[in-house]
Structures are given as structure tokens and as C-alpha cells.
Amino acid sequence: MKPAPFEYVIAESWDAAAALLAEHGDDAVILAGGQSLVPVMNFRLAQPAVLVDVNPVADGAYLRIDADRLRVGALTRHVRFEAPQVGGPLGALFPRVARHIAHLPIRMRGTFGGSLAHADPASEWCTLARTFDAVMVARSVRGDRRIDASDYFQAALVNDLADDEVLREIELPALGPDWACGFAEFNRRAGDFAIVQSVAAFELHDGRIVDARIGIGGAAEVPWRADTAEAVLAGAIPSASLFEEAGAAAAESVGELMTDRQASAEMRRDLVRVMVSRALEDALAAGVER
């Protein structure tokens, strides 16, 4: 369980990383926290010729509110999200999501950008990014390219980044104070990748939902935004039965459900229904607390 031989190079800036990727083409891969890459290298499922270590990149790890955008540096470690970093409903959601990612030692190393680059179907950050229509900012020798979440996730472990692009920043909307955000997931052990998870959020005006976001992870090959379920919520007053209805609509909306020995497609559909309604309950509870 040792990786095949590889060359190891260090990048101290995103431009340097982009230049190295341009030089080595698809022989090179980025090493961020290494929490997904190193295991697959140890299993020899991945045998990259060149590792470009971006950990030394200056100012690669940050969370910044910049006008109405929340900017996350790709190298921000998962653990950082466990403590409040920024205000607002999204800032309040981060710690509740982050603690579901693996275990503390893994969260100490793994990065936000690494999760998005790895694009596991059950990654919490990927689901969150899809839910809020994040924009991925990729750097190459050609400059920056902005990729919408709806285009970014292409299949399980496949994203829209070109071989010579490095993900340097993720942009999220800085949600206003009337938003309430929630999260729920189901797995067999604490720290395991979820079988199904949901990020849900809604904006309340005078007790009515005026806007809603529902994202689902783990159910299909890519994180999914359930717009039909969002439509169920629009204009309605939050209630348990409304959330159930939204859950049912979400379950209907997911196209090709995955099936494996943890859960059949049918079981996943049921879980989507439950996780969406629970994420909405969680949002409501969080909203009330504020």
C-alpha cells in the first residue's frame, strides 16, 4: 500500500501551479490536503507521474465577504469551518456541515477546494456549492475561468476543470439575514461519506418563504438541485407538512439514482425525501434561534 514512483514539485503561487500543469499536461495532478488523492495513490488506483503540491501557495486559504459574495480560498481546510468564520446564515451553517466531513485528523488536512476538485457525489461541500450555485474560479496559463456549479459537476469524480487548470477560489452568495439554512445526512457511521444528504435554505419574509434552495448529495452521480421542491416552498408558510411535501417533490425530481450495496436506488429515493424534509426542519430551527 505504497504509491507508485512519482515526481514531486512545489508551487508557491497559483500561477506557478498553472505553469507546472501546462508543462506536464495530464501527467501532473494537484496535491492539496491529500485526503482523497493519497489513499487512491496508495491503492495504486491513481499513478500520477508528477505531483504539484499547492500547499505552499501564498494566501490560498481564506474566507472573505466581498460585497454580496462569500469567497473561499481553495486551500481552506475543512477544520476551519468548524468554528464560526463569517457572519450570516451561511456562516452559521458551515460548522453544522463541516463536522459531518470525515474525522478531525482528515478535516485538519483536507481542503474545501480539494473536495470540489475531487467531486465525490456525497461530498458535503459539493452539495453545498451546488445548492447555492457557487462559481468555481479556475486558474490556468490562460488566466482565470469562472465555472457555474450547474456546469461544473459532470459525473461522479468528474468536473469541468481542464487538465491544466487549478481551482483557486470558490464564490458563494453571501446570503442576507432573512435566510435560514439547514443540513441533514444519513450514513452508517459517524464520519463516513453520506448515503444521502441535503442542504436546504429558504428566505422568509413576514413568515412566508419567498425563495428557497434545496440541494441533494449522495443520491445521484452529481449533486442535484431540486427546483421542483423549491417551487413547492415558494410562497408558503413553513410547516412540517410543507417540508414533507417538498421532500416528496425532491425525491421525485432526482433522475438517475445510484445503487450500491449500501442502498438501492429505491432506498435512496426514500432517503432523499427524508433528508430534504429534515434539512428544512433544521433550517427552520436554526432560523428561529437567530
Binding site: P39, F43, R188, R189, A190, G191, D192, F193, R261
Partner: peptide, 23 residues
Amino acid sequence: LYDEAGQPLSVTFADYLMPTAME
């Protein structure tokens, strides 16, 4: 677990689930 071809499906700690203090 094995598939029909006799391929083992539980070959790492990600798929052979040991209980932890949390469970």
C-alpha cells in the same frame, strides 16, 4: 461482501465498516 464474479467488495476500511466510539 463479494460480487457474482467472486470479487471482494470489502477491501478497505471505507467499505469494511468497523465500529468506532461513535457507534
